[in-house]
């Protein structure tokens, strides 16, 4: 099939960007979206141009590297799908596609479709862990966890940290990302000792990074490739309220 691509090109974070048009020719239906871009990039290079920079690594929906907005949808709008898992059979010959980077105050553009997501790492550094020194753990089965909690924790822990939730949110909030980590650890006995401090620190870091507030629109949930539920945000709000109250009482 043949398609027309309108792609955001931006040389670096300081230069202004613009949309440029490219023809994607003879694209096999069974190719993935990123393979389609590979083909276009080979054509661009042969014609003497610089390829469109976009990030990807695992190309199977687990590393969270790939990130782009297609026709207004983060990851292209297929349910539970990263853009690297999106296949061309979902498009039609003659389609026109607009491809842009994640847009958010906290994600400066590095080049073309590549943005800097290090703010998400710093949120985790502020508290997204259980403090346990290597070698100091008790036997794994000494700590039984009800299957239900463990399964729910896993639902949250699946987050791949891609940042689509931020890109889809009109406020540029990373609440779904944050709530997934807080939910995962908060549901497990291992996460209890640091539970309150964790949520306070992570929310503060989130705000400091320039991510916006959550106003309960839940666009994030709709684009999340791992279909992480917004109920984790509700859970986070509860945790945050409790932790804040305890902090006032000096009990965190």
């Amino acid at each position: 099939m043949n398609l027309t691509l309108k792609v955001w090109r931006q040389k670096d974070s300081k230069s202004p960007g613009r949309i440029e048009t490219y023809a994607a020719k003879n694209i096999p239906e069974s190719a993935s979206f990123l393979e389609m871009l590979d083909i276009v990039n080979e054509d661009i290079m042969h014609a003497g141009g610089e390829p469109i920079m976009f990030e990807s690594d695992c190309r199977e929906g687990i590393c969270g590297t790939c990130s782009m907005v297609i026709n207004g949808y983060a990851h292209g709008g297929q349910r539970g799908t990263t853009v690297c898992q999106l296949h061309m059979r979902h498009f039609k010959d003659g389609d026109e596609l607009t491809i842009e980077p994640w847009r958010a105050a906290a994600f400066p553009v590095v080049r073309d479709l590549v943005v800097n997501r290090s703010g998400l790492d710093r949120i985790i550094q502020s508290g997204g862990y259980v403090s346990v020194r290597t070698g100091s753990a008790v036997d794994g089965n000494a700590l039984p966890v009800p299957k239900k909690n463990s399964d729910l924790a896993m639902d949250a822990a699946q987050c791949i940290g891609c940042g689509a939730c931020v890109a889809a949110c009109k406020n540029g909030s990373a609440m779904l990302f944050l709530s997934a980590k807080v939910g995962h650890l908060g549901l497990l006995p291992q996460g209890q000792p640091e539970r309150h401090r964790r949520v306070l620190n992570m929310v503060r870091q989130h705000d400091q990074e320039g991510f916006g507030n959550c106003t309960n629109q839940y666009e994030c949930e709709a684009v999340c490739p791992k279909e992480i539920s917004s109920t984790f945000i509700t859970r986070l709000n509860r945790d945050y309220a409790v932790a804040s109250a305890r902090e006032l009482l000096g009990a965190v």
């Binding site: 862990y129 346990v132 100091s136 794994g140 089965n141 700590l143 039984p144 924790a153 291992q190």
Partner: peptide, 17 residues
């Protein structure tokens, strides 16, 4: 043991093991 302590959500049986 180490991974469980970190909060890795390994699959569990109904008894919690």
């Amino acid at each position: 043991d180490q991974c469980v302590a970190q909060g890795v959500p390994f699959a569990r049986e109904y008894g919690g093991q």
